[in-house]
Design a protein around this nucleic acid. Structure first.
Lengths: 349, 349
DNA sequence: CTGTTAGCGCCTTCAA
DNA sequence: TTGAAGGCGCTAACAG
């Protein structure tokens, strides 16, 4: 039998095997489970690997073993710091698992998300993490049929696809309204950009609670389709002042917007929190340092990423208890000066 | 509902072929180059694919064709907005290419980066984008030996590995010193956190230019190993005030730090820009909106991501002209109120 | 335009 | 502890 002709100059398992004087499968074992290979062989193999600069071929490995170590992660945005914090949690948690993350960006588009779900599934991922609970029907069906663990994150729902790590946007928004009320504010406004499903839920949470307390006024709801940013916050606040100058406090659907409101209010010499209470959403790092420090809702973004990975890893292992599959985290109101009229001026932190 | 499924009931190309009454290779062609398949067959195949819910197996495809469509991207941080903007550019540019991005996070560690280079190479990526030009010798050797296009981004060097898209950190920093000088400041300070290679170059750019102009004072160089953040900016500024209260302007190695300085200065009733000129680096979105608006160096992050992908795509196609392989972008000083003593108070934007 | 023949590089199974 | 045989699902290179 003629020697197999090699069409590429790649170093393969066979090359290493020959170099080490063992068979290919032994090299394979030596890489995946070194303890199952005798020490002498192991040493020779390792030496051969180093000498030849062997790098395993993942695709071949995936094909033969029918599994990949790819954890797919679909987020609506890579720039939004909300999701970059989730990423951080994911990356930190992934280390212990031997999995590798692959991020995809749906740009807040359900149909793009569906395409990405397809793409990921084509790679037979070890697991999949998707953002939110509002997949398209087809996307949902694909995920339900997927033979890998699936985790929905950043929101809660009554009928998750598989596993879930999230918190209630509705409740968070409602708690902000109550906080304003407790601080003595009576004419709350809400500012919101890009109306993705979770933003919408926050808006309705705000509305419901305000209605319940008898302090809702539709004039004080200002939204835009544009993406959320500090600049948008300035703009929306200007719009609000034009439409409903009587507003005495404002819930911004995220911290970017709230920061914009703070800066714009400063320019207009509107005193926060005396003349205007401000509350954001997410608790970005900067929010604690602006003047006045921003009251906001701290969302468990890092932890969400971490836990999602943990759930996938657990599902890949022996068995998961049903109780573990749905993790409802808490988003906590962090009260700072921007919503406390009793505040007395800038102080060093 | 998920997991634990027996792994033999996958729909394969053969299943589709049988269903459509053609051979597997025809189905394969129909997916990759529909125009090379007769219309009737194509219709039957498409119908079969839909009926069976066929999803191609990437690993098998990669193995057989000896190529993947994975573009590996190694960044030192996923949360740093500098890199998330690069990501945005990458994602926007990738669409036209049919490639798929895979991000890895080196956490500013050269050795982690080396590991990631190995991991990526194991997947036979279509291309690789790495941050900076300071890979470990081994990492560099791996990349030089890689049989795929490699792009270094966010910095410049005389001997790039392969292709490059970046700008000069040294020159940028020097231009900031000159700007301060022109505005009448004479005792410049520099604040810097996490001393990654690019930050270091900026510090030396600042130092050299200040020395050249005869206004350098080592007391006014304040650095820390911690990661850069708004809080760190507050802290470093406090340190500076303790060490060298005579400083009349400060170059912050990035906008996070500068924002912290602005907020901390406000708390200390230090007037910017009259008593203190402030300049940041990167031009984050928020910097234009704070009070006073922040002078900073606008770095071409989005474009860097875009161009890097374009270079890879071009290298994958027919032929690239040598001239195209090294792209030196420009980082531009954006002068705003925080460094212009002539500024007269807050104004709406 | 379509099919046949061979692998791609690795891992599973089973035997030694 | 190690090895031999076979195949994972797909595609390059040729025929037809």
């Amino acid at each position: 039998m003629p020697a197999k002709t090699k069409h590429s100059n790649r170093v393969t398992l066979d090359d290493v095997a020959r170099e080490a004087g063992v068979s290919a499968i032994t090299v394979s074992r030596c890489i995946r489970a070194p303890e199952k290979v005798a020490a002498p062989s192991r040493l020779r193999i390792q030496a051969a690997i180093d000498r030849l600069g062997y790098v395993p071929h993942m695709a071949a490995s995936a094909l033969a073993s029918r599994r990949t170590n790819v954890l797919g992660l679909i987020v609506p945005s890579v720039t939004n710091s909300v999701f970059s914090d989730v990423l951080l949690g994911v990356y930190d948690a992934i280390e212990a698992t031997g999995l590798s993350v692959q991020i995809a960006n749906s740009r807040y588009s359900p149909s793009e998300e569906e395409t990405l779900i397809r793409t990921f599934l084509a790679q037979r991922p070890a697991g999949l993490i998707v953002s939110g609970v509002d997949q398209t029907p087809t996307g949902r069906a694909l995920l339900e049929a997927a033979d890998c663990p699936v985790v929905q994150i950043m929101d809660v729902t009554d009928n998750p696809i598989d596993m879930l790590v999230g918190f209630s946007h509705f409740d968070s928004a409602a708690s902000v309204v109550r906080h304003f009320m407790e601080q003595g504010y009576r004419r709350p406004a809400i500012l919101s950009a890009r109306m993705d499903p979770r933003s919408q839920v926050r808006v309705s949470g705000f509305r419901r609670e305000a209605e319940r307390l008898g302090i809702f006024d539709p004039r004080r709801v200002v939204t835009t389709q544009g993406r959320s940013s500090v600049g948008t916050g300035c703009q929306l606040f200007a719009d609000l002042m034009a439409r409903a100058p009587d507003a005495d406090c404002v819930f911004c659907n995220n911290d970017d917007l709230a920061l914009g409101v703070l800066f714009e209010a400063a320019r207009r010499n509107i005193r926060v929190p005396e003349a205007l209470g401000v509350c954001g959403f997410n608790d970005l790092e900067i929010s604690a340092y602006v003047n006045p420090p921003l009251t906001t809702v701290a969302t468990p973004r890092y932890r969400t990423g971490q836990e999602a990975v943990r759930l996938v890893a657990a599902a890949l292992g022996p068995g998961v208890e049903e109780a573990e599959r749905h993790l409802r985290l808490e988003a906590k109101l962090v009260v700072r000066a921007s919503s406390q009229p009793g505040w007395t001026g800038p102080t060093a932190t």
